[in-house]
Each structure stands twice: as structure tokens, then as C-alpha cells.
Write a protein that binds this DNA or RNA. Structure first.
Lengths: 337, 337
DNA sequence: ATGAAAGCGCTAACAG
DNA sequence: CTGTTAGCGCTTTCAT
């Protein structure tokens, strides 16, 4: 026991059984290689008999390419990021690559995580979490590992990024709400989150430009529960808002539930709510939430194609793509038809 | 361009700079190895200077262990499986291993997917999707790659499995509903799904044992939309059911929305609904769905510990763990208090 | 088209 | 404790 599995069959075993050289069997699994039909048949037959398939780790060592893409995420229990992950895996697998999934639990260990990804010699890196420390950026640069940030952008401009214009989205939300409402509120995410910051700033700036100064702000952490709790604080006041912009759909759904079931408010008659992301639940008929849709598919496509362009052609530069949200108006807000 | 990145620094570079042998630097990164503080310091200094870190691919080749666990899933955009994936990644990373995530899109490609996982020399395999073809089972056996099935079980009994007793869950649902209802219905999942089959059979068997024969059945595909659609078909009948058991929460939520917003029914006065899984949304106040909770954490724990027991000690046998659901009663069903 | 041989970057005996 | 050496399983020249 604990004896390393030495029973794996290698290309030598196959070669011996097939009566050819070991390089012949290697060539059998190398698309462009020149090998006669006769040899190929013998090899394939022997391979099947022994249940052989090439060791990709060994191949990677010599080819200096693993066909592995590291995907770094956190919070992907959220519906939005779980769809993002789904799209990434689908696209990456389509391209014949595989995914090393790395989960960040505390912003703490980001550097460690990234560094083990690099140790696995990933061909590329998708990062939907954390801002890169300069150490990591340097390592990627040095090893020439292509990186693309997803819904993050970097202070250092040596790294590619695809993200959504949160500020513009927040502004659109404000513009929809401004006409028919009097008291505005915003439920943000964690202090450090750049997406939360952008979205809320866009919203606040727009309402301030319209002369409104006494809006309210609360903070959640992007989850349903935190949205519910933040809404409770907001709606408990005598000067309760009649329009709430949440920087994530999940918080918006929590807000709607708090409003309806704890405060007996009617939506949108008593309160308009607007979210951000357009997750599946936003269109469920219990909610029918007005929201800012992130063009998820387009974003993933852009990220993937940028990444693979870098992988295939190392002289490519970096590229930052900033996409716009679509305002999806549903019945959770009062607005002109 | 397209020139393989030859600029990676290797242990030889570090050794040269540090003025020691290459094995010395290797030992520096091998926990139990014997090396003097002096050498270690020299190596570490040189390593930092060159930004060196060991190539895990090369290490894996000689150690015959990659510290990679293959995780095979499908449908993980669903809230339940996205939490499952979250738990798996957390636990696996805690154990110092990493995840190769493989997404199944069509039951078709299962064998290919599994086979590439094996080619990557994964130390173990978690499969939450698909039933294994005997080819794959054989490959795993031969390469001695430990496998654990999650919410699946195998005809072949050479493979470990952890799953939830769906039949028992269905029965519990029936027992809750039997007292106060007259017309029962069940919304199943796809024909081929074993989880769907078990859960619905348990339910149906229990109501039949109570002399009820004229229950209704519809089929969805585990999604909200399909649940909504199935409920529409059910509730459009003049002999509409007053109790519906859905084999997944998502379908149950779709059912509730169809009932309330399309048919103007009151829940639970006009219709009781019960789901399966206990996803987050089930406890949202708009739904407050009675459901059968799968002991997700326990299940993942069991799967992980079984897997690692096999990895660390290859003479272990296979083990099948069948866990029970918990009935979580909420206000979507009429039942005794 | 084919085989022999030289590594890929590392670990693991084996001497010293 | 340290350096030397022999591979891990494969791809890739280089001759043939």
C-alpha cells in the first residue's frame, strides 16, 4: 500500500507489444506526425489492448504547455458568477483546454493561490476576484503567462481586462428612477469592492447632478440576506425611501422581500427597486425585477478570445474592454412606459 | 512569437546563483529533506532574486502524483450544485490539492472527459454527473485512480458513492401531504435521471400504499422554467391537484409562481407545494418552501474523506454511503403544526 | 517512414 | 549535510 501506482502502461509497453519503436507510438498521438498506416494500426491495436493513453503531464513537461487555464474566483456560489464559471468552462473546453479552478476564500491567500497556479504552469489565467498584487503581476510577466481580469481592472496597465461599466449602469438606474420618486437610497456592497464602488458612484453622481443631496446609503455584502437586512434599516425610518438601487440583484431581491413581507409595502406603488446583473431570479414572476443586465456572454467571449490571442501569439499587447449594461425594465419600478 | 517561453527559471539557475548543487535547491522545497540553514538561506535568497518557484509538472512526473482532483459535473449552474462545487473546492484546497474542473455538456462526451482527466494523472475523481461506462470504470481501476460518485450510484459495485436517499425523501413528502389533501401530483425530472426516479418513486409508492391511484405526473428538467411549465399543464385541468411534489426546489419555485401569478391560487390554502434540496431560495420569504433538505455538507465531507482515504491508502475498498434527507416544513404546505 | 538518443525540470537514491 | 547520477514518460531532432 501507498506504493506509487507503477502499473500505468507507458508508450514503451505499447511499442514492445506492437513491435515498433517508442517514437512510433508517440507519433501516433501527434496530429501532424508522419507515420505509415501500417504502423499506426499496429500501435492503435496494442494501445487498445493495454488500455493505453498518453501521459499528459510528461507531454506538458517537454512541450512547455499544459493546456490548462487557471480560473480564479470567489463568491461563485452567487448565481451570476456561477453562470460565468459555466460559460468559461464551456468555452475553454471547446478550445481543447482544461480548467484548474481556484477558489479564493479570504483575500488573504490570493498571492499563494495565484502562485500555485503558476507553479502548475498554466497556459493562461482568468481572474474574477481580487486585485493583483504587483508581485503576482511581475511573476506572470516574467513567466509570460497571459492573464485576463474579469470584472476587475488593474492599476497596473500591463494586464488585460474585460469588465462592465458599473458607473454607467448606476447612472442609468438613477435616470430611470429620477422622474417619479422623491427619496432615493442605495444599497452598496463591501467597502473594498470596486464593482460596488463604481455602480453606486454612478448612481449617486447622477442624482446629485439633479440637485438631490439627502439620499440614503446602506451597505450589504452582495447576498440576499444582507440586502434584506439593509432594506430593513432603510425602511424602518420615518423618512423611508421610495426608490432603492441595489448594486446586485440578490440584494435587490432581499430588499423586495423585506419591503413586502416585513413592511407590507407594495412594489412599485410604495417602493421601486432596481438591481444589477440580471440573474435568472430577477425575471421570476414573484419579483420581476428591473435591473442592469451585464452582457455576460459577450464578456466571457471577449475575455476568452483575448486570453487565447495572447496564448497563441505572445507578442500581443494588453487590451482593456469596458462593456455597457442594458437596462431591463420590469415591474419592480414605476417608470414611463 | 509563438516561441515557447524558455525564459522560465529552473532549479539549475538558482543553484548556480546560490553556489550550491541543484539538489540542494530541490531539497529546499521538500519538507522533510535534510539541508543546513546556511544552504537554505543561500538558496532562498537566490530564488527570490530570480523569482523562482518549482515546476509542479516536473515534480508530478517523478513523484507520480499531481495533487490534482478531477471534479466532473454538469448542470452546476443550479444553486444546489454550485454550492456543492463550492464545498468541494474549499475542502480539496484545504487538503493542499487542486481542482481540475470538467463540465459535461452532453451525456455524449462523458467518456472523453473522464479519459482526459485520467490523462492528466489526477490523484482522484469526483463525479456528480453521468453514470460511468464500464470502459471508464476499467480505466480507473487499472490506473488505480480513486473515484467517488456524488449523488449517483453505480451498477458496478467497485466504485465508492455518496448519495442521498431520494426514495425516502419522496416518501416523507407524501406522508406530510397525505392527511390534508385529495389530489396529488408529482413533477419529475428527465426520464434518465436516477435522482428524479428515486424521489418520485418514493412519493408515488407512499401515496399508492394509501389507496390513492389517480395521481398526476408531469415532467420537467430540474429548472425553474420547466417547473413553471409543468405546473401550468397541471393546474389548467378541471381536476387540478391540491398538492404537488417536485423533485427539485427550482421546479417547486416555478410551480409556486405559476400557481400564484398565472392561476391566482393561494398557497397553501388552494395548493400545497413541496420541493427537494433546500436551496437558498427555498427560505426566501416570497416562497418559504417546504422541502427535503439534502445534508450537503455531510455529503461532501463523506465524499472527500472517502476519496482521500483511498488516495492515501490504496488498499482501501469501496464504500457506499446513503444519507437521509431532513424534512423542512415551511408555509408552502398545509400540515399539522 | 522509422529508430536512436537527447533532453524537459525535477526528485530520490547513492555515495561521500 | 551535500553533490552526483539516474530516471519519470514523453516529444523531437537527427540519422538512417
Amino acid at each position: 500500500m501507498k506504493e506509487k501506482r507503477n502499473n500505468r502502461v507507458s508508450s514503451f509497453d505499447v511499442a514492445r507489444l506492437a513491435g515498433v519503436s517508442q517514437s512510433a507510438v508517440s507519433r501516433c498521438y501527434t496530429p501532424g506526425a508522419s507515420i505509415s498506416e501500417k504502423s499506426r494500426a499496429k500501435v492503435l491495436k496494442a494501445a487498445k489492448e493495454l488500455n493505453y493513453s498518453p501521459n499528459i503531464i510528461a507531454r506538458s513537461l517537454v512541450q512547455k504547455t499544459t493546456r490548462i487555464i487557471g480560473v480564479v474566483m470567489n463568491r461563485y456560489a452567487s448565481p451570476f458568477y456561477s453562470r460565468v464559471l459555466g460559460e468559461f468552462t464551456r468555452k475553454i473546453q471547446e478550445k481543447g483546454h482544461n480548467i484548474l479552478l481556484m477558489n479564493i476564500h479570504n483575500e488573504q491567500g490570493v498571492d499563494d493561490i495565484l502562485s500555485t497556479a503558476l507553479q502548475y504552469q498554466v497556459d493562461g489565467l482568468v481572474i474574477t476576484s481580487a486585485t493583483l498584487s504587483s508581485t503576482v503581476v511581475e511573476s506572470c510577466l516574467q513567466t509570460q503567462t497571459p492573464v485576463v481580469l474579469f470584472n476587475r481592472y488593474s492599476m497596473h496597465n500591463e494586464v488585460s481586462a474585460v469588465y462592465c461599466d458599473g458607473s454607467d449602469g448606476g447612472r442609468k438606474a438613477a435616470e430611470l428612477l429620477l422622474p417619479r420618486h422623491r427619496r432615493f437610497a442605495c444599497i452598496k456592497g463591501e467597502e473594498g469592492s470596486s464593482t460596488s464602488r463604481d455602480r453606486s458612484q454612478g448612481f449617486i453622481q447622477a442624482i446629485e447632478e439633479n440637485g438631490i443631496r439627502d439620499y440614503l446609503c446602506e451597505r450589504g455584502d452582495f447576498t440576499y440576506d444582507s440586502g434584506y437586512a439593509a432594506a430593513e434599516r432603510l425602511l424602518d425610518r420615518k423618512d423611508r425611501p421610495d426608490a432603492i438601487f441595489c448594486v446586485s440583484d440578490l440584494m435587490a431581491l432581499g430588499t423586495m422581500d423585506a419591503a413586502r413581507h416585513k413592511f407590507n409595502l407594495k412594489i412599485p406603488e410604495d417602493l421601486s427597486v432596481i438591481g444589477f446583473d440580471d440573474i435568472d431570479m430577477a425575471s421570476w414572476s414573484s419579483y420581476d425585477l428591473t435591473t442592469l443586465r451585464q452582457p455576460l456572454i459577450t464578456m466571457v467571449d471577449a475575455a476568452i478570445s483575448q486570453l487565447f490571442r495572447s496564448i497563441e501569439n505572445l507578442d500581443e499587447g494588453t487590451l482593456v474592454r469596458k462593456l455597457k449594461t442594458d437596462l431591463i425594465t420590469r415591474t419592480s419600478t414605476r417608470h414611463s412606459p
